[in-house]
Write a protein that binds this DNA or RNA. Structure first.
Length: 649
DNA sequence: CAAACCCCGGCTTT
DNA sequence: AAAGCCGGGGTTTGTA
């Protein structure tokens, strides 16, 4: 879905075929998608565009130009005629001239290999390809059959030519399975040729797209052993990337990458479940060889401008598992400026994190500089987000980190705090590597990066975290105070606000807490007839936590109370005063008791007030809640909070 | 924190 | 090609 729309947009933005290819290579920075993919999905666009380009059937350019003039037809005839007659009035008329040329052309075409069939096939194809109005199904089938019967045996001659290749593309698209299989079979010897052909590559992609599993496996087999060469090929690289991203199984992908290790690993006589680390561990020579081969392929592609290719990210990921010494320095040098091209794919992000961890202070500086223009996209991206977190976790120069990112992020924090991905690095800044937000495997990765950084990161992790938090936390409080509803209405936001309020790392924000708490309380203290935010389950939970004075700890069987953050009892007073006027507003209290979501908030309040029975507010609240004993008792099974209340009063 | 729940993508089937 | 099933991952929920 997501990919689809992006691809569509990318396609629309690229008017001409060659432009498409080139532009993707150099990289729309955020989403480098191979051009070939665009082709498959936006067929009509593709074909229409192609009509604008020179339609060449011949072997050389001059031939093609004659055809162009010819096929352009009457539109240009007057001009041609004028110039001709001006030069020599005795010459034949334009019309005669043209018909003569047409005749010549026909003859020339007929002389070519299977020329007559090609002409016939193209005529049929013109009928098949029309979209408006769409060709009726039965007519289409008939045309496909006819074209196929003419093509049979000729495919190898057709597919490397510009327009004839498109005929076969259309054929593949509309043919039934059986015919497709036959086409694949006949083209099998040409797969490599297709992959390296400017026109043929689109057909190959179509075969991958519409072909059977076996057909795909065959393509992989045909290209096997030639991948390193293909990656350096202008057309071939796109085919390989598409094959890797869209049309191969994970086992096939693995074997494709193994090919980059070196020729001797390309074929199946070796153990193909072996990881790169295992292969490198066999001997120093083997490691060196694999490293050199991987680096060679990566370097060539990066210098060609294909840094965004996912297959390359996968290769890099293997390389960073085995590189050492000077290789590390050289690799960082190669990629520092292009780091932004890596951070949005899973493997690329892993490479980026590894490199940042291993980089020296100076190298980190150039990496951060390269990431700065993409700071926002990185933070919001599923994978990029982790790279930002690793920067927070490993870069000792926190002044540099802040200089790089604060200006970019300050205005975006409101969005980040509620964003599925962008919130994560900032949750880390607030509360460290809490298991509540970081699943075990993510934690494992993060710890791995920190270990890799041991050589170049000396500052205690917690110092780094707090220093990185400081420039943001004041703004976070301001945003919360200004628009508490915005923060609380999503569960992501509410979770974030809990961490923000419980944080005690930065002293300067102490005076920002009270106004924020007032704003939060105010956001649910609405007139009876209005729907309060409290009816959202996660908001009830949120207030329960604040009233308890901390998060519930299941293991300890109690609340992990956090002191000096104006939560717990003092928050209960603040809350009950604002919302119920300490219970004097009987109607509101009754409403909350009767709500399955809000009744737990009342439970929390009661717990706090019962724990401090001598205080005046407690007496007031407890007595008002007792007045609702009857209401509490009559709540149904679904109101579990009311059940607890019944046992507590 | 763990169990229940929900949503999505990939794969199989017709 | 469309529909339905399955598994994995992520989110919500429970109310100590």
């Amino acid at each position: 879905m997501d990919r689809g729309t992006k691809r569509g947009a990318a396609g629309a933005a690229r008017p001409a075929k060659q432009a498409k290819t080139a532009k993707t290579a150099r990289g729309t920075k955020q989403q480098a998608k191979p051009a070939a993919k665009v082709q498959v999905e936006s067929d009509s666009e593709d074909e229409d565009e192609l009509d604008l380009v020179s339609v060449r059937d011949g072997e050389d350019d001059s031939d093609a130009e004659v055809e162009d003039a010819e096929e352009a037809g009457d539109a240009e005839s007057s001009e041609n005629g004028d110039s001709a007659s001006a030069a020599d009035p005795n010459k034949k008329t334009s019309r005669e001239q043209h018909s003569e040329q047409r005749q010549l052309l026909k003859e020339r075409k007929a002389k070519r290999k299977s020329g007559l069939q090609v002409e016939q096939i193209k005529r049929l194809w013109e009928k098949l390809r029309v979209r408006n109005p769409p060709v009726a199904k039965d007519v289409r089938t008939k045309l496909v059959d006819e074209i196929w019967s003419l093509c049979q045996g000729l495919l190898g001659d057709l597919v490397l030519k510009h327009d004839a290749s498109r005929v076969v593309q259309t054929l593949v698209k509309y043919a039934d399975r059986e015919t497709r299989d036959k086409i694949c079979l006949e083209l099998k010897p040409f797969y490599y040729k297709l992959a390296t052909s400017a026109y043929g590559k689109y057909l190959l992609i179509k075969l991958l797209h519409y072909g059977s599993k076996e057909a795909r496996a065959n393509v992989i087999k045909a290209l096997h052993g030639k991948l390193r060469k293909l990656m350096r090929h202008r057309e071939g690289a796109y085919v390989v990337e598409d094959l890797f991203v869209l049309y191969s199984t994970s086992a096939q992908r693995q074997s494709m990458i193994r090919e980059f290790w070196g020729a001797q690993y390309a074929f199946f006589n070796t153990d193909n479940t072996q990881t790169v680390v295992e292969a490198a561990a066999e001997s120093a020579e083997k490691r060196k060889l694999i490293a050199q081969n991987l680096f060679g392929t990566i370097q060539a592609s990066v210098e060609k401008g294909s840094t965004g290719f996912q297959i390359l990210h996968a290769a890099m990921r293997e390389y960073v598992q085995i590189f050492e010494g000077d290789e590390v320095r050289a690799f960082i040098e190669l990629l520092a400026e292009q780091m932004a091209e890596l951070v949005h794919t899973p493997q690329g992000a892993d490479v980026a994190c590894t490199l940042i961890a291993k980089a020296t202070a100076k190298e980190r500086k150039s990496i951060l500089k390269a990431l700065k223009p993409h700071a926002e996209a990185m933070a919001k991206n599923e994978h990029g987000q982790q790279v930002l977190q690793v920067i927070f976790m490993t870069v000792d120069d926190t002044t540099l980190v802040s200089k790089t990112f604060v200006a970019e992020y300050k205005d975006k924090l409101g969005i980040f705090m509620t964003d599925k991905f962008a919130r994560r690095p900032f949750l880390y800044l607030l509360s460290g590597l809490s298991t509540a937000f970081f699943p075990p495997d993510v934690l494992k990765d993060l710890r791995r990066y920190v270990e890799l950084s041991a050589e170049t990161s000396k500052k205690p992790e917690n110092d780094r975290r707090v220093q990185n938090l400081k420039p943001y936390i004041g703004e976070m409080f301001s945003i919360l105070t200004e628009s508490p509803e915005e923060m609380l209405k999503t569960s992501y936001g509410a979770q974030f606000v809990v961490e923000l309020l419980l944080n005690k790392d930065v002293d300067d924000v102490a005076e920002l807490r009270a106004p924020a708490l007032d704003a939060i309380v105010g956001s649910v203290a609405v007139p009876i007839e209005e729907e309060s935010l409290i009816t959202l389950p996660h908001v009830g939970r949120f207030f329960r936590t604040l009233i308890q004075g901390g998060k519930w700890n299941r293991d300890a069987g109690k609340v992990d109370t956090v002191e000096d953050v104006e939560l717990g009892y003092s928050f209960a007073v603040r809350f009950a005063t604002a919302v119920f006027d300490m219970g004097a507003n009987s109607e509101a209290l009754a409403q909350w008791i009767a709500s399955p979501d809000a009744s737990f908030v009342v439970v929390g309040l009661l717990d706090q007030f019962k724990a401090a029975p001598k205080e005046a507010p407690s007496k007031k609240f407890i007595s008002s809640i007792k007045k609702h004993a009857k209401l509490i008792k009559k709540q149904g099974e679904d109101n579990k909070g009311a059940k607890v209340l019944a046992g507590a009063i």
